[in-house]
């Protein structure tokens, strides 16, 4: 899984702070793999369709088979059989991945809270009551983290492309997103739901600490 997500990255170039295709955690990696497989499959299907289309012009209009044969081949075979097979397989795989990304309880899960507002993010930590950070979310590296996402005003969306997909912050609701960073470091995060004139600058950073630094953070030291 991990490998599948990372190899094709070389294509992505160097500006990859926000790249969903340069995963730095298991969720983003799984999704990146899904993307590469879908891209290959889509390319193959596109080529198939275009070749069939081109051949229609190449055949010098031979005697055409009856409509019922045509229907069997084109509509039942390709239209129903082919599309259904491909789609069923893809959907099943997609759902399986989706299940794996859910925030299931487990050992070592850390909970943090993210609150979006126009145009900033505020983070709090149940493990360190009273601790509040603005614009930077601190997490331990290598451990699953559940972000409880809420909003103080309009709808926002919490998105750290290199770690996981996005999840909305909706007034009156609490949404929980599972993220995890493989290694300590800083990861760019974005507000990803349009929220008015300040939208472009609705950024934040995720800071992943190694175990020692995380303990220090919880103990109240300024990172």
């Amino acid at each position: 899984m991990v490998i599948g997500g990372t190899t094709p990255l070389m294509l992505a170039g160097c500006e990859d702070r926000l790249s969903a295709l340069h995963p730095a955690g298991p969720a983003a990696a799984l999704i990146a793999t899904l993307w590469w497989v879908m891209l290959a499959g889509a390319a193959a299907i596109l080529v198939l369709v275009l070749v069939l289309l081109a051949l229609a012009f190449r055949r010098g209009g031979g005697p055409s088979a009856g409509d019922s044969r045509g229907e069997a081949v084109w509509i039942k075979g390709l239209g129903l059989g082919f599309t259904m097979t491909v789609l069923a397989a893809l959907t099943a795989w997609g759902l399986w991945i989706g299940e794996r990304l859910l925030p299931r309880p487990g050992p070592g899960v850390v909970a943090v809270e993210a609150q979006g507002r126009q145009w900033a993010w505020r983070f709090t930590y149940p493990d360190a009551p009273g601790r509040v950070t603005e614009g930077a979310l601190h997490i331990p590296a290598g451990r699953p983290v559940d972000v409880r996402i809420t909003s103080a005003d309009v709808i926002h969306s919490f998105w750290v492309p290199r770690l996981a997909g996005k999840l909305d912050a909706i007034p009156g609701h609490v949404n929980v997103l599972r993220i995890q960073a493989w290694a300590p470091g800083e990861y760019a995060g974005l507000g990803a739901e349009f929220n008015g004139p300040g939208y472009r600058r609705h950024h934040f950073t995720v800071v992943a600490h190694d175990a020692a630094a995380w303990d220090a953070f919880l103990a109240g030291e300024t990172p």
Partner: peptide, 9 residues
């Protein structure tokens, strides 16, 4: 595909 949409949305 739900997981992919979480990124692409």
């Amino acid at each position: 595909m739900v997981p992919f949409d979480w990124q692409a949305h």
